[in-house]
Computed example of a mutant assay.
Amino acid sequence: MTYKLIAIDIDDTLINDDKQVTPATQAALEQAVEAGVVVTLATGRAYASAKQLAAQTGLNVPIITYQGALVKNLLDGKVLLERHVPVEAALKLGKYCLEHNLHLQTYIDDKLYAREENEKLVAYAQLNNTRFYLEPDFEKLFSQPTPKMLIIDDPAFLDELAPKLHELLGDQVHITKSKPHFLEIMHREGTKGHALAFLADYFGCTLEECIAIGDSWNDHEMLEAAGLGVAMGNAIEPLKAIADFISTSNNEDGVKVVIDKFVLNK
């Protein structure tokens, strides 16, 4: 199979634990592009945050952000695909979180908002190298267009909360985890799988000609959609179970291993 498009998750996949793209992985990315392959990023991060890391790689293509709710060009910032959390669902979720005193964050115009500053917000902003904004009258934001709302809490608690939110919000939304303590809520089509299908069509290739590489449960839709779904060596076990290939970890240039084996045929 000749692969024409590679979609790569960022955190714990493309970048190592030092939040860097290693020189070896960078060289592999460049070689893939030189070979005529479209290399894109697929992340739960906001566009502004993902753009910083994309600049580190030198990529100049549309990238998948907010778990697939926004596909946007790096070069000119043109929006190619956008899906917002339905207002009805956003209002229900916001009300539920306020009533149960949960830490909820939302994105408006690619800016991160929360009701108050706390350790969860500060740690999240530092992790994503993102500035945050406080809005004490938080409820007024719930009716504004947002690609993603996010709850931060104990992993076990979020595992119990997710089915409750599914029941509350119905099939209007897609709920997933990017990290054990991040529960993320998007439009029902706000998945990396939907976005990958869009980009495959955009670049004139089939899903069979796509490679998807990730490490967490929010990557499973794109691994299932792609012709070759790759789980990193450090991926969660459920993702490894559905992967076509398991690479080395993000600290062992796992992305380079995939490119060398399946694109450059080394």
Rank of each mutant, 00 (worst) to 15 (best):
I259Q: 02
D76Y: 10
D253Y: 11
L134C: 09
P62T: 07
P155L: 08
K19W: 12
V33Y: 05
T146C: 08
I236W: 11
A27T: 10
A32F: 06
E221K: 11
V173L: 06
L70M: 13
M149G: 06
V39L: 15
A225H: 02
E99V: 00
L183P: 06
S247C: 06
V37K: 07
T106A: 07
T130S: 15
E184T: 06
N129K: 12
Y47H: 13
R83H: 15
A46S: 15
G77L: 11
V122S: 12
V61K: 08
A46P: 00
G214W: 13
E117P: 01
F198H: 14
K256V: 07
N234C: 09
V173S: 03
E167T: 10
C210H: 00
C210L: 05
L127K: 12
L93K: 00
L59C: 10
I246F: 04
E117G: 05
P136V: 04
K120R: 13
H187F: 04
L121I: 09
D9T: 08
N16E: 06
D76F: 04
L102R: 15
A243Q: 11
I152C: 01
E82C: 03
A235P: 11
H100M: 01
K92P: 06
I151V: 15
L264K: 09
F157Q: 05
L228Y: 02
L70K: 03
G58P: 14
T130E: 15
E139F: 07
V230E: 01
F157V: 02
L29V: 08
A28E: 06
E209V: 02
P145E: 04
Y3M: 04
K177C: 00
L59Q: 08
T2M: 13
M232Q: 03
N250G: 09
D219E: 11
N234A: 06
A212L: 10
L127F: 11
A50F: 08
K261P: 00
L29H: 09
P136K: 03
T43W: 01
L41Y: 02
K240S: 05
D260P: 05
D215R: 03
E34V: 02
D159L: 14
